[in-house]
Nucleic acid binder design. Structure first.
Lengths: 224, 224
DNA sequence: TGCCGGGTGGCACTGGGTGTCACTAACGTC
DNA sequence: GACGTTAGTGACACCCAGTGCCACCCGGCA
């Protein structure tokens, strides 16, 4: 991912097969599909951020990425999916982390640690992450779509809780832990985005602490 | 709202202006728009439940409701909106209930009580509620759309918490309480729907208790 | 050389949603 | 009673997301 490419994305001039950013031609395209996917993602993120998700048509993204509209929809089932990087891989990683959890740790702590680790991005990737999350949390259409993606996360977390407690993944507690921890995670993301001075990890921990302690600061009514 | 009309909805035979279910013509239509809205809702709910949300076209709903496609989209901005009854009124009522809360009650208890009261349906309305919620929680497209509607709920709850704690509605705690209580509410709905033996109110209370106590059953690790 | 298979582009089609215009039924006014 | 006004409506054209289909191109392989 070339940094310093904040300007225009390649437009139509991109040759059919991958040329590295410095201009050298990679002789044997290792994975054509992955390269186009990446180019499309970059173009889409750029356009969405500049103009707004609804205002950008699939044709415009395709043009900017130097491919056809049809190819765009072959790489991403939905306009919205172009924003979600390799989210499936993230969910898989979350699942692995949860599976590797030691049983002597409280369940909520395990989940928190897994969330923190999955969202532990390198410093140079943070700008892209902010861009992505600002879109997902800000654009109504993407906010709606997110529910479908998060359903996978919830399923994974609920299954983990169910394993730990011996209940069914369909029972109240596992589901509730899954949905409320995800609520905590997304809220932490929102606050982190809006704030800008704190770490994502710190905000996640703060949110999970509140949740795990049952919102202690709310426990005592003003008791006038 | 005429009960006992579980059969087919009016199809095309409906005259341009309102005829009561028994056939008598109401001379002066009291509120044409509200009547068409109700007819559309009923037709949409019926068709969606029978065939699936994605499979039903706006034309089919319009036909079933005896109006034109254009009129359908004038009454409901979206196919999905036809499922959400008068949700705006529910949010407004939730807001009133929260505003009327006594300050000597713990915040979470107030929110729980408000949720329970807003969702306190008469026995004869429960079937429709189940139908509606089964669609919203089951159909991916509606599940996605729900996020947008719930954003209003979250805003209302966050503002209430902010008032009670003196924080900004944009701060972590108010947002977190809003999103996680909503998570609790929707999870309770899911479990209530799937179960069928419990009360919605009881399930809501159970979920809120877990949340308010910080998931006590998870607190102690197996401590082998 | 011919065959095969994957990535692609072009094209037509469905369906959600919108803007516009014309029609009609109330309603009030002169 | 003729007139303008207004709200609800239907018809039509349009944009755009997404899909199915087919033809093409190109690298690999017998």
């Amino acid at each position: 991912m070339p940094p310093g490419n904040t300007g225009l994305v390649a437009r139509r001039v991109v040759p059919p097969w991958p040329v590295a950013q410095d201009g050298t031609v990679t002789e044997a395209p290792p994975d054509v599909r992955a390269d186009t996917r990446a180019r499309i993602q970059q173009a889409a993120l750029e356009l969405f951020t500049r103009t707004g998700f609804e205002q950008v048509t699939a044709d415009e993204i395709a043009d900017a990425a130097g491919i056809s509209r049809r190819t765009f929809f072959r790489c991403f089932a939905t306009k919205a999916d172009a924003v979600w990087g390799e989210f499936g891989a993230h969910v898989a990683r979350l699942e692995q982390l949860l599976a590797a959890t030691r049983d002597d740790q409280p369940v909520l702590a395990s989940i928190c640690a897994a969330y923190v680790e999955v969202n532990d991005y390198a410093a140079e990737d943070l700008p892209t992450l902010r861009q992505r999350m600002a879109l997902i949390l800000g654009e109504p259409a993407l906010q709606a779509h997110s529910q479908v993606r998060y359903a996978d996360v919830d399923r994974v977390v609920a299954e983990h809780v169910a394993r730990r407690t011996g209940e069914s993944p369909e029972a109240l507690l596992p589901r509730l832990v899954a949905t409320s921890t995800r609520a905590a995670a997304t809220t932490a993301f929102e606050v982190w985005l809006a704030d800008g001075t704190t770490t994502l990890a710190a905000t996640l921990h703060a949110a999970f602490d509140q949740l795990a302690l049952g919102f202690p600061s709310l426990r005592t009514p003003p008791s006038a």
